[in-house]
């Protein structure tokens, strides 16, 4: 069991990221959103933590140590897009361009502010999971605070 995880875990991050991107894009025509994408990436990262241990996992992927900042930034991005509406006199959580206006397309992806919101949410969910795993692992192993 642990040997399978040991082989799979380090190779899973790339596919997980691609799958996450696909889910975010798909969310604008079908079921899917930043939250589920974040959960998928976080699960892949959690597997790394399980197989490598927290110290090695963070040494091999130093960006994990920046998780608290990433979570903060993600949440602030989401809040900023959500509350941009009141700045120009619209209700909060209005998306731009409004319904019926022309939208820039990249393939099937429509570039509206809701995409930015979803990306912020994705960053927050992923990073918050990592922070959580980090703290639990350290507490459970009785490591340095």
């Amino acid at each position: 069991m642990s040997s399978i995880i040991g082989v799979v875990a380090p190779r899973l991050l790339g596919p997980a990221l691609i799958l996450a991107a696909a889910i975010i894009v798909k969310g604008y025509a079908d079921v899917g959103d930043g939250f589920s994408a974040g959960v998928i990436v976080a699960t892949a990262l959690a597997l790394r933590y399980v197989s490598l241990g927290w110290e090695l996992a963070e040494r091999s992927l130093p960006v994990l140590r920046r998780a608290p900042q990433v979570a903060t930034a993600g949440l602030l991005i989401a809040l900023a897009t959500g509350f941009a509406g009141p700045l120009v006199g619209d209700p909060p959580f209005t998306h731009y361009p409004r319904a019926g206006e022309s939208v820039i397309h990249i393939g099937t992806l429509e570039l509206i502010t809701a995409v930015v919101f979803d990306l912020g949410l994705f960053l927050f969910v992923t990073a918050a999971f990592v922070v959580l795993i980090h703290h639990l692992a350290r507490l459970a192993q009785g490591g340095p605070r």
Binding site: G85, D90, P91, P92, F93, T94, H95, R98
Partner: peptide
């Protein structure tokens, strides 16, 4: 002026 009501996203 009485209650203030906002519905998100218009």
């Amino acid at each position: 002026h009485g209650e203030v009501v906002v519905t998100t996203g218009g």
